[in-house]
Structures are given as structure tokens and as C-alpha cells.
Simulated scan of single mutants.
Amino acid sequence: MRPHVELTDPRALRAYAHPTRMALAGLLRREGPLTATRAAELTGESVASCSYHLRVLAKYGLVEEADPDGPGREKPWRATAQYTNWPGYSEDPAVAEAADALTLAIAENHFARLTRALESRRELSREWQEAERFTDVTLYLTPQELTDLGERMDALVAEYADRGTDPSLRPEGSRRVPYLQIAYVASESEGKAPEGERP
């Protein structure tokens, strides 16, 4: 897999914003090559739905057939890259609108997954519950400072990134941990919200 795939075509950005397609791309990145049948078992979608959405992802270079000569729906699919990048800014209104729609879809997806995790967190051991992070802070930064902070965070996270593609690097007792980095400019009219709270 390449490290990143870049989406700049508005059609590709809108295509990727579909929740089933995001789920399939993530699944292939984590689990390796899968057939549409196996993907259906893991996602709860129908085989026909997975086949269709995998073909759409392939059209825009997010997945590809691992064995093009395989029979029908038993052809394994694989992700083409570990991460998906898209523009944070574009002069092209079509690209900017599609990129914003994808960012919103990703945020909604993360919120839904976070909600499910919070609903079941009491099933985790005390060690895991205490290790989880749920905190926030408001900073006053320039655009360059925010960029620098993001790059420093990326460098820290990158120290663990190889474990995603190489299970032999995962220490005993490790689990899959989605780690979100979200920073946004608050509206000037936004009221003061509680900060630094932790359940």
C-alpha cells in the first residue's frame, strides 16, 4: 500500500463520503485483502451492496482487485493506500464544496463510532477506561502555529503507525485505538462552552 491517496476530483470526494464506502476502505486497510462476500460478513451489508461500493471505490483509485483473475464476487479487493487525503482549501468551488461535504461525513462517522464506544466503555478493564482520552482545551494560535502543532502531533502518532499494517509489531495486550485530532477555528459569536472536562 502507498502511504496516501489524494482525492481532488469532486466526484471522487462525493463518492468517498458514503458511509459504506468509508467502512469498506477502512476494513481493507486494517484486515488486508477481502472478497465482497467476506466484507459483507464483517460489515453486515449485502454481498451485492459490497460489490457495488467496492467497484465505486476502485473507480476513484481507493481500492483495487488483488487478484483480477479471481472468479466473480470471490475476487479479493485491497486498499491502495493507508490513508486518504483531500484538500483543506481549494480555489475551485466544486472541489471546496465536495471536500467540505466529505469532512462533514467523516466527522459524523467518527461521532457515531465514538458514541457507540462510550455506550459500551464500562465493558473495558479499569486500565483501558483510565487510559482513554476525552478532553479538550481552547488555544489561541496563528495559522502557522496550528500547522506546526499538527505536524508535531503527526510525528508522535507516526511512531506507532507501522503496527497498523504489520501485526507482528503489535505488543501483547494492544488493541485498535482510533486517535482523533480535531482542531477548528471557533466562531466569534460562539458562547463559552465547558472546557477541559473529563468523565
Score class of each variant (00 low, 15 high):
1 M>P: 06
6 E>W: 10
10 P>T: 06
13 L>R: 04
13 L>N: 10
15 A>T: 14
19 P>G: 11
20 T>A: 08
22 M>Y: 02
23 A>K: 13
23 A>D: 14
24 L>Q: 08
32 G>L: 03
33 P>M: 00
34 L>G: 12
38 R>W: 09
38 R>Y: 01
40 A>V: 14
41 E>Q: 15
41 E>W: 12
42 L>C: 01
42 L>A: 01
43 T>K: 14
45 E>F: 04
48 A>C: 02
50 C>Q: 07
51 S>C: 10
51 S>V: 02
51 S>Y: 00
52 Y>L: 10
54 L>C: 04
54 L>T: 07
56 V>N: 12
59 K>C: 01
62 L>H: 10
64 E>R: 13
67 D>A: 11
67 D>C: 02
72 G>Q: 05
76 P>A: 10
77 W>C: 06
77 W>R: 15
77 W>A: 09
83 Y>K: 13
87 P>A: 02
87 P>Q: 01
91 E>I: 12
92 D>S: 10
97 E>M: 06
102 L>S: 03
103 T>Y: 09
106 I>Y: 06
107 A>Y: 11
107 A>G: 10
108 E>Y: 06
112 A>S: 12
114 L>E: 11
115 T>I: 15
116 R>H: 03
120 S>D: 00
123 E>A: 13
124 L>P: 07
124 L>T: 12
125 S>E: 09
126 R>Q: 13
126 R>G: 05
126 R>H: 13
127 E>R: 08
127 E>C: 02
127 E>A: 08
131 A>E: 06
133 R>L: 14
133 R>D: 05
135 T>V: 08
139 L>C: 09
139 L>A: 14
141 L>A: 10
142 T>E: 08
145 E>R: 15
146 L>A: 15
149 L>P: 01
151 E>N: 15
151 E>S: 13
153 M>V: 08
154 D>P: 00
154 D>L: 07
156 L>Q: 03
157 V>L: 14
159 E>I: 05
159 E>F: 03
160 Y>K: 09
161 A>P: 04
161 A>Y: 04
162 D>Y: 00
163 R>C: 05
164 G>H: 03
164 G>P: 01
165 T>A: 04
165 T>N: 03
167 P>M: 13
168 S>A: 12
169 L>W: 02
172 E>M: 00
176 R>N: 14
177 V>H: 01
178 P>Y: 09
178 P>L: 14
178 P>N: 15
179 Y>E: 11
180 L>T: 05
182 I>N: 10
182 I>H: 02
184 Y>N: 01
186 A>G: 01
188 E>M: 12
199 P>S: 02
